[in-house]
Amino acid sequence: MWERLIEEAPRFFGYYNLVFLGKAALATVALSALGCIIGIVLGSLVALLRLTTRLPLAPLRWIAALYTEIFRRVPFLVTLMLVFFAFQLSKVDLPMFWVAAVSVTLIASAFLAEIVRAGFESVHRNQWDAAAAMNFGLLDTVRYVVLPQAWRIILPPAFGFFVLFIKDTALASQIGVIELTFAGKVLNNKGFSAVLVFGTILVAYFLVSWPLSRLGKHLEQRLASPRHQRP
């Protein structure tokens, strides 16, 4: 086996393959980043909806709760298949990257909605009371009082979720998105040995994910320190 690896390696780590892998790694990060950025916006909206109290908004509240419950209990692969076939049947010709991005967004919104909600709930009840008594509406309360206090609670787990999802997007290879895992399959099909190919792919993921998760831990410690809690 070793002879084969040594023989293949120079060809495998050639210029074109490295560029191919680099682009694939970029797609992997972009997929998760895109889904999580849109996801935190939509997730905040969902979390906000769940905080409304007015009676006419009750159906929306209900839908928001159902949404977070459902999409956190369906595997990424199944959501991916549903989105894939839904686009196929609606004859919308969307590149596979975007099909996967929609799936990531759907799931990320649900998980991030819960993270945002937990952040909102971490702000003491008396802050909400004071705002309400001074005639702040829900949006003003969140904007001026709650978010400035909750963001440091929300950011670390949200970032952690983004890093976690970088690895989950490996499943997007199943519908043909050219990201890291798919690149591995392509190179394996070209005849490179599986040890070399998938070993390299694993290392590539590690090189992307490890620094980001370290950054996340650093972020968490920084934001959690009792001093410098100023906005």
Partner: peptide
């Protein structure tokens, strides 16, 4: 194991 995808880990076990 926490910084690489489970899918690719299994790929390695199964194909490599």
């Amino acid at each position: 194991f926490t910084n690489t995808p489970q899918l690719v880990q299994i790929y390695f076990l199964y194909f490599a």
